Each structure stands twice: as structure tokens, then as C-alpha cells.
Simulated scan of single mutants.
Amino acid sequence: MFSWIRTLVTACWRPLQRYVRVNMDDVTLGCADDSLLWCKDLEKHYCGDFSFAVVQANEVMEDQSQVETGRDSIFVGVYDGHGGPEAARFICDHLFQHLISKGLLEIMEPYPKMCYKMLFQQQDGFLTLVRRTCAIKPMIAAIGSCCLMGVIWKGTLYVAHVDNSRAVLGSISRSDNIIAEQLTRHHNASMEEVRQELRALHPDDSHIVVLKQGTWHIKGIIQVSRSIGDAYLKKPEFSVGSPVLKAEPSICTSVLQPNDRYLIFASDGLWKHGIARRLLTMALHEASRKRGMTYDQVKKLEKGVGRYFHDDITVVVMFIDHELLGGKAVPELSVRGFVDAVGPSNFTILEGMDPEARVPEP
């Protein structure tokens, strides 16, 4: 197995033996010393462990991501940028902070209402930035990002997404087999239901979806049907056409069950080809195979060139230990993917907050 991708797998694979039966024969230790690969092997959260891995392919890293841990909560955000990193960076800088500033994670007003507020606030905030800067940087109107966010709060899982990314819940069956359940659905023109929705919304536009080199694209330009940003496909002031994309999230909630063992949050770069390091190894080996190259050849590619073989990839794997629920407190951490810095999380803002208080409308 090739060295630097193999080490990317190890970060999230090694701790899995604590939660499910796995073969650990091919596990190595530590992260590779490679500037295009970043990983956080194992950190604590309030009901288990998490691991985190990112690999860069683009000239500028377009994936942005974060994990925020609290006393009885954990927040995961994966933001898969396209056209540039600005929209993904904006979400990473503002989404969690906005949740915390409103106290929503402690008060937990109805989750769908909360998510609609938060993600539309990100959309409006970034479009304000586009308006301010498009005169000097016109291409910012073509920059956007997918957004996948997940929260575990006192034993309940909340997921919202506007994207191509996926969240998967892994459980153990009565026969001791691993069952994987996809919690999100693609907002992508490759899905027949998405194409039908677009055609219904734009009955007079025969080119609303176009098959281009075997892949469906909206207006022949973009695959995702929902995003943050992409002003030129949403606001007439930035384009000559009618709006075709939206920022409306899909949302799900579920109470964690005793047989639930792990969660995977990952950007589209992973799912195109195939936990964090184990999954990334599989993805990059597949990317190499499809191009008729060995991994030794792929790993020598410079950033930017690698984009022709695979996308930026972000994976967060969260292991769930039900015995820890309501147990010993763990440090509150803020971890950003591909940024080698760990600090205190702003979950501490919630200390002393009245849980009966109501959040004012924005």
C-alpha cells in the first residue's frame, strides 16, 4: 500500500476496533510528512472519539471543515467549495459562530427552523460580500460551496446539508454485521428526481439540464442544484439568466440508538470513488487506477495537477460510545481541517445560559 495515502487511512481506521470488529493487519501509525495531506488521528468528544483527515488536490485548498466539541455536544461542518475557496471559508468562519451567538445549540428551537435560518444567513452574508467585491473581482460571483453540518446534542443527531457531500451512520445489526445508512440525499443533476424537479420549476427552459460528456449539468455548467454562493446562477444582478440554484437545506434528525457506532461526514471527493484515512486510501487508489497510474506516480503530482485525478477530500469520522453519554467531561476543542491548530471551542459561551430563554428572530 502506498505510504502517504496509507497513513491517511490510519487516522480514522485504528480506533474503529474499539467500536466494531475490524481487521487491523494493514494499519500503520502516524501521519505522513506531506504538505498536501493533513490528519488528526484521534481526539475526544463527549460521547466517544473522532478522527479527521484532508487531502489537497486543487492549487488552492477549496474544501474547508471544522469540528467543535462541547460538554454535551459536538458540531461537524464540511464545506466543499467550487470555483475558489472564498465561499467555503466564509461558511467556516461564520456558521458555527452564528449558531453559538444565538444560543441555538443550547436552546434547540425546532431544528428545521434553526437550519433554514442559519444556512440562509450564510447565503445572504456571502452574497453581501460578493456585492461589495465583484467590481474588483468579478469572478467571485461564480464561487460557491456545498455545506454539510451535523450536531450531536445530548444524544440526538441533527444533520442539514446543501450539497453533494454525505453523512453516513454506521450501526451494528443483531448478527453483528455493520450496517451503513446514508442520512443525506444528493442535490445533484445526476439524480433523476433532481432533474425532474428542475424541469418542473423551469418548464420553458429546454436546456435547464444538459447531458455533457456523459454527466448531467444544470445549464451545462454545474452539477449541484443547491449551494451557498454561486451568485451568477441565483441573482439576476449577476447574470442575464433566471435563477436556477437555491440554498434550501435538506434536514434530518434522529435519536442515537444503542447499536449506533460511528458517523462519517465527507465531501464529494470521497464518494466519487468509493474512518478517514482508510476511506481516503480507497478513494485515491481508485482515482489512480482510473487514470492508469500507480499511486507512486500520483503522489508526486503537484497541487493543481492532482485536481485532474481527484478532488480535494475531507473526511470526519465520529465514533460513538454510549457508555460515555453524560459521563466524564472532556476538553472543549475547535479543530479546523488542513489548519494545524487546535484551540478552545466557543461552546463555552453557552455556560450559564437560561435554557428556557427564547432566541430573538434575526
Rank of each mutant, 00 (worst) to 15 (best):
P112C: 09
L95E: 12
T28L: 09
H45F: 15
S101W: 04
L105N: 13
E106D: 10
G70Y: 04
S35L: 11
R14I: 14
H45V: 09
Q121Y: 09
E109Q: 15
D80E: 01
F90T: 04
L42V: 04
F120S: 12
H82F: 07
L105F: 08
C31A: 05
E86G: 05
D80L: 01
C115T: 00
P85G: 00
K40V: 08
V54D: 13
F96K: 05
E43N: 10
L119Q: 11
R18W: 13
M118N: 03
D25N: 14
D26N: 12
T28Y: 12
R71H: 05
L37R: 05
G81M: 06
S51K: 02
I107A: 11
C115E: 11
L119T: 01
D80W: 09
D34S: 09
C115F: 00
G103P: 13
C115S: 07
F96R: 05
D41T: 03
T69Q: 02
C47D: 10
N58S: 04
K117H: 07
H98P: 00
Q121E: 14
M24T: 14
L42H: 08
P112E: 14
C115G: 02
G30K: 03
D41V: 01
H98G: 01
V27S: 05
D25W: 11
V76R: 08
K102C: 12
C39R: 08
I91H: 09
D33P: 14
L99I: 08
S101H: 06
A88G: 06
A88M: 11
M61I: 08
V78H: 00
Q66D: 00
R18A: 15
M118Y: 06
S65A: 06
E106P: 04
C92D: 15
K44H: 14
Y19K: 15
C47G: 11
Y79A: 08
C92Y: 08
I74A: 02
L105Q: 12
K117N: 12
D26A: 09
Q122T: 02
H94R: 11
G83L: 00
K102Q: 13
R21V: 05
V67G: 01
M108P: 01
R71S: 04
C92A: 14
E86Y: 08
L16M: 13
Q17F: 09
E106C: 08
C47T: 08
R18K: 15
E68Q: 13
E59F: 06
G83S: 00
F52Q: 01
G103W: 07
C92S: 14
G70N: 05
A88I: 03
C31N: 05
P110Q: 04
H94Q: 11
K40M: 10
Y116S: 02
V22W: 04
S101Y: 03
Q121D: 13
A32C: 10
E68M: 13
Q17E: 13
I107Q: 13
C47R: 02
N58R: 12
D33N: 15
G83T: 01
F50L: 04
H45Q: 11
V60Y: 11
M118V: 05
